[in-house]
Amino acid sequence: MEMEIKQVIRKWMEGEINNFIKVWFLVIASLTYSYFVSKIVQKGPSRLLTFIPVIFLNILLPLNLHTLHLGVSSGFFLAWLCNFKLLMFAFDKGPLSKNSSNLSLSHFLALSCLPIKAHGHKNNFTKTSQKGLNSLWNYGIKLLLIPFFLKIYDYEEYLHPKIILVIYTIHIYIGLEILLAIIGGLVKSILGIEIEPQFDEPYLSTSLQDFWGKRWNLMVTRVLRPSVYEPVLNISLRFTGRRWAPLPAILATFIVSAIMHELIFFYMGRRWPTWEISCFFLLHGVCLVVEVAIKKYLVGRSGLPRILAAPLTVGFVMATGFWLFFPEFLRSNAMVRATEEYAAMGAFVSDVYTALISHGL
């Protein structure tokens, strides 16, 4: 019986990897089309029209993948990062527009989908990239924590639900950081493109503005800022003046982020939205607007000391996350599925290794 289950898992994993290869083959083909079309079509609505089929394809392709690690990550890279970069590139904005005439096809493909910078060379590490990479010890310790978390889940029924949610939070953060570090490291070693830091110790945040703008998931910030925040800011300047123009821009950014998170969660669980995720981001958007307004009103006056501000900020993020963010995450049965995928991937890698050994490779 156990052998039959393992065979089913292996066949399922092989099928998923085959689908993954097909999906990304289509991605490369569609982005190659976008690359050459941009050479002959002027920026503006005309170029946007040529990109629309690619944008829709990027939304649909992740639906062919059903695992958390391949499906959700592909959905994030394609439906969010790639599409927003293409939308900006249609009007000659964003990272793809910088020196686009000198951008090679391979760099265009990588830059479109992945959280990397347009400039940088091998072995040319800046302070920022060093900070983003941290050290091998840092990633090694975090990597060792994952099997520890998986073991804890075996005793989930004996632990308080809030403790499990805290472990989920840490697991997600570590998993994201390691996944992005692996992808970034491969891209840097192959193409020599500088890696963008994705997290900057978010648990040290002293305000919501610090957490969302400078520390958490920075690649999303770098995409949303030029594509949503800055355009809305420019419009707001005409009506509210420079002092208060950032407030509607902040709220608009969180609304767009809420919509995109609902899409990512749909990829994860194939469930129609319950809108709790949207409520989470709208709540944080409103709270951040209030926070910024208070700072503007109290300009020049001292705020809370770091020793109080940091735990209050992180506590608020975690409390609202437990209330609105994680229920949908749990309904997707994400952690159980992740554990099964780790086992399936291990079995698949073992089969590949055995096959290579048997052929003398």
Rank of each mutant, 00 (worst) to 15 (best):
N124M: 12
I116C: 14
K98I: 15
F316K: 05
I164D: 01
P226F: 03
S106N: 12
T32E: 11
H121C: 13
D210G: 02
V72A: 00
A355K: 15
T32L: 12
K39T: 10
E276A: 07
I182C: 12
E341M: 00
P161E: 11
L165R: 07
L78C: 08
L324Y: 08
A245D: 04
S100C: 08
F266D: 00
N234F: 07
I195H: 01
M318T: 13
L133T: 07
V289F: 05
S350T: 10
I195Y: 03
Y158H: 13
S30R: 00
W323R: 07
P248N: 11
G175Q: 06
N134S: 15
E341D: 02
S112H: 05
F325S: 05
K162P: 04
S350F: 08
T240D: 00
L237H: 09
A90T: 09
W80G: 03
I59T: 03
E340T: 09
D351Y: 07
Y342D: 02
K43W: 14
Y353R: 09
L218Q: 13
H69Q: 11
I178K: 02
K295M: 01
Y203K: 11
V314A: 04
M335V: 14
T206Q: 09
E291A: 00
L165D: 08
I17C: 13
Q42C: 03
I357H: 03
P45V: 10
L133R: 14
I9P: 01
P226A: 02
G71I: 10
A79Q: 03
N64H: 15
S236I: 06
Y267W: 03
N234L: 11
L312A: 14
V336H: 12
L288W: 01
L26V: 08
S207M: 06
V256F: 08
L176P: 03
F77V: 10
V314H: 08
L324Q: 04
M88W: 07
I167P: 10
L251T: 00
T32I: 11
K151N: 14
I167R: 03
V314C: 11
S302K: 15
P202K: 02
D92V: 06
L361N: 10
F326W: 14
S207E: 07
I195R: 13
L87I: 13
P147D: 12
I59N: 01
K11N: 14
L49I: 05
R243P: 06
K131T: 12
Q209D: 11
I357Q: 13
F280C: 02
T126M: 11
S257M: 09
A249Q: 10
S101R: 10
G321W: 04
H284R: 04
L186T: 13
V299I: 05
C279Q: 09
R225D: 00
L111C: 02
T126H: 08
S302F: 10
